[in-house]
Every structure is written in structure tokens, then in C-alpha cells.
Design a protein around this nucleic acid. Sequence first.
DNA 1: CGCGTCATTGACCGCAGTCAAAATAAGTGG
DNA 2: CCACTTATTTTGACTGCGGTCAATGACGCG
Lengths: 261, 261
Amino acid sequence: MTRKTPNPGVVKMGDGGPDDRFQRLLEAFPEPLRDRLTAELKRVAMAEGTVLVEDGDTPSQIGYVLSGLLGMTKHLPDGRRHIIGLLAPTDMYGRFHEQQFSHRIEALAPSEVLTCPRDLFETLLREAPAAERLFLIDMLDELDAAREWLLVLGGPKVVQRVASFLLVLSRRKLRARGRDAAAHDQPLNLRLDIRRADLAQYLGARAESLSRAFHELAEAGAIRINDPYDFDVTDLEGLAYFAGHDLAADSDYPGPGDRDP
Amino acid sequence: MTRKTPNPGVVKMGDGGPDDRFQRLLEAFPEPLRDRLTAELKRVAMAEGTVLVEDGDTPSQIGYVLSGLLGMTKHLPDGRRHIIGLLAPTDMYGRFHEQQFSHRIEALAPSEVLTCPRDLFETLLREAPAAERLFLIDMLDELDAAREWLLVLGGPKVVQRVASFLLVLSRRKLRARGRDAAAHDQPLNLRLDIRRADLAQYLGARAESLSRAFHELAEAGAIRINDPYDFDVTDLEGLAYFAGHDLAADSDYPGPGDRDP
DNA sequence: CGCGTCATTGACCGCAGTCAAAATAAGTGG
DNA sequence: CCACTTATTTTGACTGCGGTCAATGACGCG
């Protein structure tokens, strides 16, 4: 470990609030099963850079992110790395029925995960159809989420992608906080705990471009930059504007002409 | 219907060969259940542009693509459309347990689908755990596939994305054809049946840029363009080269310096 | 205090988005 | 069957975003 720890301690890009999916899943298990499961849960802490699962592995454990930030990464033969997904608190990862991973999972920040033996989890799922159904729905949700990201990353301009990214994080936080309208107007604090270079890979850009994008958003008054890892979202609407419209299109639509009439 | 039909009749971006997932799924059902299911299957043909599922719907049918090409599309409030996924033959679509769709599904080319009542399918899945497990694995595979696309679409250059796209299609076709090595050397024919403008939206580019990219690949000898909808892949290796490396990086790495030592 | 890491800023330039127009193909009506 | 219209792809010229390279600044650490 050579790298500094941006924000030591607990990190949140989403926190185990009412939206805690694992909690919901646990509650779908009938009492005796749930106890068998919780007895086997282990809390593991790890440093940034730790590789939890290697590409091609079929690990015997499944995991649930408690704190920090994990990344799903693909490594090309020539050595370049791509980040194809992020795992924040309340996210799960794992494979079932001897499927193997098609990517690496590594800690992008110091993190904590809850692990559980894969075979036990599978057995219990089979014994509790209600839980299995809930789990399947979760999977489908994640599939949708992955496709949402396609939309985000499909945006041609970097500012757009950055704004979309911050927007997703904001919404996630707001949802976790509960839906009380009061919270909507006060500045929303986001602590990222991901290095510029990593975020750049994820958003399909360079660290330099991200820097420009963040500062552009700051100058427009949509966010405030406290330090490279800590932001306040001061104008959610404005952020949505940057996310949706091209910058070039100020009062005019960028291209209304590419849909069928 | 005002638009021409690029290639009337059967279309294949993948054909129901040994990789036919639906077939495999069907076979996982025990005899009596399978018959109940097949009795309810309906074959439906539709014209290009048909909307099968509207964003937000919870349709009573699930579908399986027999021929043609469907697209998952998202519509932004300002009217712009994004294609976030393609459904080719052997692909399935549907929601379960009252989940609603988060995108529209429409035919990008004249297509045929096999439909099946959602509730029946769900019931049968519950009665046949083996099939349910198979189905769950399929879902997870699709999740991985969606992330693969993230990698493809993350490529900075258009040629890269186009090459990756063709590569995925090629591999899919080869897999369907069986793994005999003989087929690897002979030119592989790809019939796309997707208009440039649609493909452009999917790959996050403009139709003009695609045109340039295709012809760049053709000049490099990787593909041959028979007509705008019909290609021969003459050099799979070369295609992989374009997909992986930046063009700029000929004999030199573009940026080996952004991984930890 | 010097060094390494990382974010930021500036200068340069290439890829691709944009606008415009030509070329090709398909469809229509005489 | 041909002239005309329409839809779509292709090509060209221009411009701007962002990738690239290089330098500076900020911060933590040995």
C-alpha cells in the first residue's frame, strides 16, 4: 500500500437506510433460516487496492458492501484497465451455481464487506421461494440499472456524464434519507472517495477532462467543491440540466431532427 | 409504415442454433409443464417501428425474439431517444412479479417474436426449480453482457466501438455455428438490418461518423462492405486490433502509466 | 527538507459533431 | 419503362470538445 487514504473511516455513496436491499432480503427468510445465515456472516475490512475476486474466479463467498467503494474492472491483454461498474454500500456481488466471474472486483477505497458462504446462501434461497423471488427481482433491477449507466456513459460530452454521475449519487442519497421534501432544498453533501484517474476510467474520460468538468459545474453554481473528494450539490435542477442537455444547446434544441416524425 | 424494409424476410444477428437459450430453458421443464407452456406460445410478426412495450408498462406477456431486431429505447423529456440495448434472435425480454418496464421495446426491423403469458411462465418457474435456476443464471449472464457493452461503448474512438460491435456480432455468429475451426478462416457474412441512424444512437455517435468508421475498416481490409446493411468480416484479427487498440497507438502504448505498480 | 503522488492548469491538435450537398436506392405515378 | 419524388447513405468543409503532453501547485510521508 503506497497510496494515501483520501477519507479514512466510513464512506458513504449510499448508506444502509430504508433502501437496504440486503436487509429486505434477510427479512424475506423465515426465522430459522435467517439465523442459520446470519450465523455465517463475516465482516471483513480491506485496504484500497485489495483484489477481492480475480477475473475468472468462482469464489465460495458472496459479498455485500458495508462501506467504501468497490470497482468491477476488466483488464485488456495489453494491460489497460477499464472500470465497468461500481459497488457502493447496499450493493451485492457474487455468482451462483458455479458461474465464474467475468471481471475483477477490487477495492477503490478502504472498504468493508459482509461475506456469506455461497453454497449456504444458495441452499437457503432454494428453501425460501419468497426470498428467491425477491432476489431475482433485485437482479432484474440491477440489469436495468446497468442499462441506465449505458445511457449516462452514452452522453457525448464529459460534463454531461459527470453531471449524470453526480445526479445518480444525489438521488441515491436522497432516497436513502427518506423522501421528506425539506432535504431537497438544503445543499447535499457528497463524499466520493474515488480518485480522479479511477473515476475517469469509469466515465470514459481523462482525469484532466474531469477536472475541467467539475470546475465548469462549480462555476455554473450547480456544485461546490470543498476538496477533490468532497462536493456539495447546491442546485439539483441545474445539475439535471447539465446532465440532460448539451451545453451548446442553450436556448435552442441541439438536434430535434433525428426522430421519425 | 413509410419506411423501406432493408432486408425483408428472415434476419439473423444470431440464429437459433445450439446456443438457443429458450430451447435450453424449455428442456429444463419436466414434460407436463413444458406442454402446458408450449400450448400457450404465440408467434407474432410485426413491422419495423412497432412498439411492443411502452416505458412503464407491466405487460401480461413475455417475449422471445425469433427473427429481426428489437431495441430497448429510453426517451428523454425533451424528445430525444437513446437506444440502450438490442434484442436479437434468442434473446428474451419481460418483467416478473409486477415489475414495470423502465424502457420502451420497439422493432428496429421487421421482426417475429414468440410470446407467452407472464403469469403462466412465473407459475411454471415456481413449480420447476431447475428451470428457475437456469433462468436466474441467464439473467446474471445478461447482466454481465450489459457490462460488456459498457466496455464497448466506453471506447473513446468511434472506429473502436464499431469494430467492437462487429466483433461481438461475429463471435455470436461463430458460436451459433459451432466451434469448427474451418469456419474461422472463411469470410463471415453479417447482415445488420439496422439503419445507420439507429446504430449511431446505440453506439453513441452520428450516422456520418459511422459511415467513416465502416469505410475506414474496409480500407484497412478488416471488412468488406457489400451494401449498407451487409458486410463480410474478412479479418477477425484485424477487427480485434481496431477494437482493442487506439489507432494512434501503432507500435507504442497509448498510456501505460495509469495503473498501480 | 526533499521526494512522490495526485489534482489542476495551460497549450496544442486530432477526432468527431455539425452543417451542407451530392450520390445512391427505393418507391410512385404517368 | 421512364421521369420524378423521397428516404438514406456517403462525402466534404468547418469547428469545438477533449485527449495528450508538459508544467505547476498542493499534500502527505520518509
